[in-house]
Computed example of a mutant assay.
Amino acid sequence: MTLKLADPVVVPGGADARCDDVSRAGIGSGITIENVTKRYGAFVAADRICLDIQPGEFVTLLGPSGSGKTTLLNLLAGFQRVDGGEIRVDGKPIQNVPVHKRGFGMVFQSYALFPNMTVAQNVSFPMRMAGISRADSDRRVAETLEMMQLSDSAAKMPSEMSGGQQQRVAIARSIVMRPKVVLMDEPLSALDRRLRESIQMEIRDLHRTIGSTFLFVTHDQSEALTMSDRIAVMDAGRIIQVDRPETIYRQPCNRFVAGFVGESNLIDAEIVRREGAALVLRTKTGHTFRSPAPEEVSGRNVTVLVRPERLILSDMPGQESIPARVKSALFLGEILRIEVTLDSGETLLVRCSDSAGQTLPAPGSMVHVSWGMSDGWVLA
């Protein structure tokens, strides 16, 4: 029995492909957030946050509840006042600009549709408030409804539509004015998994089409990895790491990011020596293995991240393999989820792709676990 690697995380289209599309379409604004602070009494909700967002970029604020991501979005939208620092859009400070004059599109978690208006009336509402002529408004509404696959629902009331359709209406309303910036606050959290994944693709394609700058808030790591050009991981009112999705996943800057973004195996080890671009490491049980050496590493003890899909299980021992006992084994459709326990008491999680004729190892059975040198990442 040798269990194959699960498919690695793939960012559809690649961040470079998305950025290239946006730069060609680009009507989006550049956003600079510099040392922005927000306090509620003694509680600091945003702690000197700095972030530069390029015109037409799709950036996701990702973090647990209370990390400050919605606070930062509200400060940018103008729903809350900045206590310190500065926010600039296309180089101009906006702290004193009223919400309705910032010209941002906004999509809320609750949809916030007018129940007494049809779909077309809901979508046209921002244009009526802006005093745009009926003819121009009707044309733009028709274009936007077609873009969101809602043309056949123009005369429906929100109560006659599913949750996914209502969310499409809310998105259509936010983009009908072709804003330079679109802000989205956990807009998909109320939808079921299949519908959520479908609308993720629609939002990503919409971003490519209109070229606005998107700032998206979520606590769902899969949303962030799937949709973003860059992800800003937040915790306790601060941005911990900002980078491309694949870098955030494969090369997190610390234990928090490694544990929050994706499932992770964090292995405590001691540095034995450096061999060129690699570190020779030793686990608590005396097992030695190699990992790429980071540019900077301090101290003798480190933590090594190995993602579950990078582990290989086998019946037979191999070079640099570690003996382990199967704790649990679950069949999850296309994925097998297996937990094994090392002699040290540490538990490792293995995720492998299902294949024809493959059987799950029995709990209590002995196996051997290994990974390649490039599959480990030493956390700074």
Results as ranks from 00 to 15, higher is better:
residue 237 G to S: 09
residue 237 G to F: 06
residue 239 I to A: 05
residue 239 I to E: 03
residue 241 Q to N: 04
residue 242 V to S: 04
residue 243 D to S: 13
residue 246 E to H: 05
residue 246 E to A: 09
residue 247 T to S: 11
residue 247 T to D: 10
residue 248 I to V: 15
residue 248 I to C: 07
residue 250 R to Y: 14
residue 250 R to P: 00
residue 256 F to N: 11
residue 257 V to W: 06
residue 257 V to T: 13
residue 258 A to H: 01
residue 261 V to M: 01
residue 261 V to R: 02
residue 261 V to K: 00
residue 262 G to K: 03
residue 263 E to G: 12
residue 263 E to H: 12
residue 264 S to H: 07
residue 264 S to D: 05
residue 265 N to F: 02
residue 265 N to S: 01
residue 265 N to E: 09
residue 266 L to Y: 05
residue 268 D to P: 03
residue 268 D to A: 15
residue 269 A to T: 06
residue 270 E to K: 09
residue 271 I to S: 07
residue 272 V to L: 10
residue 274 R to C: 03
residue 275 E to T: 05
residue 275 E to S: 11
residue 275 E to N: 12
residue 276 G to V: 04
residue 278 A to R: 04
residue 278 A to Y: 10
residue 278 A to N: 03
residue 278 A to V: 08
residue 279 L to Y: 11
residue 280 V to K: 06
residue 280 V to P: 00
residue 280 V to E: 06
residue 283 T to L: 13
residue 283 T to I: 06
residue 283 T to M: 15
residue 284 K to I: 13
residue 285 T to P: 01
residue 287 H to F: 07
residue 287 H to V: 08
residue 287 H to N: 09
residue 287 H to E: 14
residue 289 F to K: 00
residue 290 R to G: 00
residue 292 P to T: 07
residue 292 P to G: 14
residue 293 A to P: 15
residue 294 P to L: 14
residue 294 P to Y: 11
residue 295 E to L: 12
residue 295 E to Q: 10
residue 297 V to A: 02
residue 297 V to N: 04
residue 298 S to I: 14
residue 299 G to S: 02
residue 299 G to Q: 08
residue 300 R to Q: 11
residue 300 R to D: 08
residue 301 N to I: 14
